[in-house]
Deep mutational scan, measured.
Amino acid sequence: AVCQVIGMYDYTAQNDDELAFNKGQIINVLNKEDPDWWKGEVNGQVGLFPSNYVKLTT
């Protein structure tokens, strides 16, 4: 993983390639090539999510 982030809001996947997560959930970021849509993993599920829905862990 590149880094870990925390969901600031609940996110519901809109497409099959997206990653759903809940507020407060830890997401392992796998790829930040696109500044707006990062690739991440939660509980074995991998997908894209909007980078503005998360904050970096300290």
Rank of each mutant, 00 (worst) to 15 (best):
A1T: 11
A1W: 15
V2C: 09
Q4K: 10
V5S: 02
V5L: 01
V5R: 02
I6C: 08
I6A: 05
I6D: 00
I6W: 04
I6N: 03
M8G: 07
M8S: 10
Y9A: 15
Y9Q: 15
D10Q: 05
D10R: 09
Y11N: 00
Y11R: 08
T12Q: 09
T12L: 08
T12F: 08
A13C: 03
A13N: 02
A13E: 02
Q14T: 10
N15I: 05
D16E: 14
D16N: 09
E18I: 01
E18R: 02
L19M: 04
L19F: 04
L19Y: 00
A20I: 03
F21C: 00
F21Y: 00
N22I: 10
N22P: 13
N22E: 15
N22D: 15
N22H: 12
K23R: 15
K23C: 10
K23S: 11
K23M: 07
K23L: 03
G24Y: 00
I26W: 07
I27C: 05
I27S: 01
V29I: 05
L30S: 03
L30N: 07
L30K: 02
N31P: 02
N31S: 14
N31E: 15
N31F: 00
N31W: 10
N31Y: 06
N31H: 12
K32T: 12
K32D: 09
E33V: 09
E33M: 08
D34C: 06
D36V: 13
D36Q: 11
W37A: 06
W37I: 13
W38P: 01
K39G: 12
G40T: 06
G40S: 02
E41N: 01
V42T: 09
N43D: 13
N43H: 13
N43K: 08
G44F: 02
V46F: 07
G47K: 06
G47V: 03
L48V: 13
L48A: 07
L48N: 11
L48W: 14
F49M: 04
F49K: 02
P50C: 05
P50I: 05
S51G: 01
S51V: 11
S51Y: 00
N52F: 03
N52C: 10
Y53W: 10
V54Y: 03
T57P: 14
T57D: 13
T58C: 14
T58G: 14
